[in-house]
Lab assay of single mutants.
Amino acid sequence: AVCQRCQARFSPAERIVNSNGELYHEHCFVCAQCFRPFPEGLFYEFEGRKYCEHDFQML
């Protein structure tokens, strides 16, 4: 399997985020606008991209 964002493979010891069947490295699972991790894992999706609450409100 490969990361949805960076397309790199996962190492066996690595923590992986699964979002609706899409797999991400922990450091790749970030807001599409500000590139920060999601507070408490909370995000909003718009047109296939994931956003933090602040950036989602700015759309």
Rank of each mutant, 00 (worst) to 15 (best):
A1P: 01
A1C: 02
A1W: 04
V2R: 12
V2H: 06
V2N: 08
C3G: 03
C3W: 03
Q4I: 06
Q4L: 15
Q4P: 08
Q4F: 08
R5M: 15
R5I: 14
C6H: 00
C6F: 02
Q7P: 01
Q7V: 09
Q7M: 13
A8G: 15
A8Q: 15
R9V: 11
R9D: 11
R9E: 10
F10K: 02
F10T: 09
F10P: 05
F10A: 04
F10H: 04
F10Q: 01
S11H: 04
S11D: 14
P12M: 12
P12Y: 09
P12C: 15
P12D: 15
P12K: 15
A13P: 10
E14K: 03
R15F: 03
R15E: 12
R15I: 11
I16R: 09
N18M: 05
N18Q: 10
N18W: 02
N18Y: 02
S19I: 08
S19P: 05
S19M: 08
N20S: 14
N20H: 14
G21R: 04
G21I: 00
G21V: 03
G21T: 05
G21S: 11
G21L: 07
G21P: 03
E22A: 14
E22W: 05
E22V: 09
E22L: 14
L23A: 12
L23D: 09
L23P: 13
L23T: 12
Y24F: 12
Y24T: 06
Y24H: 08
H25Q: 00
E26Y: 09
E26V: 13
E26P: 05
H27S: 06
H27M: 04
C28Y: 04
C28A: 05
C28E: 02
C28L: 00
F29K: 03
F29L: 12
F29S: 08
V30H: 08
V30T: 10
V30N: 06
V30P: 02
C31T: 00
C31Q: 00
C31H: 03
C31A: 01
A32F: 06
A32H: 14
A32V: 12
A32K: 05
Q33I: 11
Q33K: 09
Q33Y: 09
Q33H: 15
C34K: 00
C34H: 15
C34Q: 02
C34A: 01
C34Y: 00
C34D: 01
C34S: 00
C34G: 02
F35T: 14
F35Y: 12
R36S: 12
R36P: 02
P37L: 04
P37H: 03
F38K: 06
F38D: 03
P39T: 10
P39E: 11
P39V: 11
E40W: 05
E40P: 04
E40D: 11
E40A: 09
G41R: 10
G41L: 04
G41A: 06
L42H: 07
L42T: 14
L42E: 14
F43Q: 14
F43R: 04
F43D: 02
F43M: 07
F43L: 08
F43K: 04
Y44L: 06
Y44S: 04
Y44D: 06
Y44T: 06
Y44I: 11
Y44C: 12
F46G: 03
F46D: 06
F46P: 00
F46H: 14
E47M: 06
E47T: 03
E47S: 04
E47I: 05
G48C: 06
G48E: 10
G48Y: 03
R49K: 13
R49I: 09
R49M: 09
K50S: 06
Y51W: 03
Y51R: 03
Y51A: 01
Y51C: 05
Y51S: 00
Y51I: 05
C52Q: 02
C52I: 00
C52S: 01
C52N: 05
C52A: 00
E53W: 07
H54K: 14
H54M: 14
H54A: 14
H54G: 13
D55V: 00
D55F: 00
F56W: 04
Q57K: 12
Q57T: 09
M58K: 13
M58D: 09
M58R: 14
M58W: 10
M58C: 13
L59P: 06
